[in-house]
């Protein structure tokens, strides 16, 4: 009990004094996850729009594959990326294993199906609303996709935030492919896991504060986006 109380006090102290390790790890976490989110959105959002607008041959197959991938345990994704990037693997020569790049790759694989799936659901709804009008106006395929992406932007933000939340809180995959190396690949979740196992609750808790704050920020933003949508602002 005393340990815990001490830990909390120290954690607050670490947070308030912007402890160097704490800041370094938090920033790395943000950098990795935002990079992964950026890449994922580049793939997921256009893909979601294309899936909503176009009726092509493998559409059903892609959708079921995405759904299956969404259910893939992150640890398994980590394992697969590890095998692919390991020295003897097909991409071994790139030397990416145990770097933040490997972590970004793992996170992209984990969140792209999630973002695509959520985005596709809302864009499909929007498309059924717009369908007749856009067909009647002779819009090109590309104009349809652009219109959906723009008019569905709030829903797309929400989808992206869900991806961010998933990525920033993920531990299994990035532990495997990043290796949790101090000053190199250590991020919020892997650091919490390590510090906890070492019994150093102070840093673990401080890192936990940061993680919770980020999660709450995501929640509030999602909520706020929903409200602006209902109230018809921007």
């Amino acid at each position: 009990m005393n340990d815990l109380w001490n830990g909390i006090q120290q954690a607050i102290w670490l947070t308030l004094t912007l402890d160097a390790d704490l800041v370094e790890i938090s920033l790395r976490s943000l950098r990795v996850t935002l990079s992964a989110l950026f890449v994922s959105c580049l793939i997921a959002l256009p893909l979601a729009a294309i899936l909503a607008v176009r009726r092509f041959k493998y559409r059903r197959l892609i959708i079921s594959t995405l759904n299956a991938l969404m259910g893939l345990p992150p640890v398994v994704v980590g394992l697969l990326v590890y095998i692919l990037l390991s020295r003897s693997g097909p991409f071994g020569v790139l030397g990416l294993l145990f770097t933040t790049h490997a972590m970004v790759i793992a996170q992209v694989i984990i969140i792209t199906p999630l973002i695509t799936s959520i985005a596709h659901q809302s864009l499909r709804e929007l498309w059924s609303e717009y369908h007749d009008l856009l067909i009647s106006m002779n819009t090109s395929k590309w104009q349809r996709i652009k219109t959906l992406l723009w008019d569905g932007r709030r829903a797309l933000m929400t989808a992206s935030l869900a991806g961010f939340g998933r990525a920033i809180g993920e531990v299994g995959a990035i532990m495997i492919v990043g290796g949790n190396i101090d000053h190199a690949t250590r991020v919020l979740t892997t650091a919490i896991s390590l510090e906890t196992s070492k019994g150093d609750f102070a840093l673990a808790l401080a890192l936990g504060f940061v993680l919770i704050t980020l999660a709450l920020a995501v929640n509030f933003t999602t909520h706020w986006l929903g409200r602006t949508e209902r109230e018809g602002r921007w």
Binding site: L126, E129, Y130, D132, L133, S136, M137, N138, T147, D151, G152
Partner: peptide, 14 residues
């Protein structure tokens, strides 16, 4: 290109 259509229940873009 020279036709327009007004639907029974108006479709408004968001």
């Amino acid at each position: 290109e020279q036709q327009s259509f007004v639907f029974q229940s108006p479709i408004m873009l968001r």
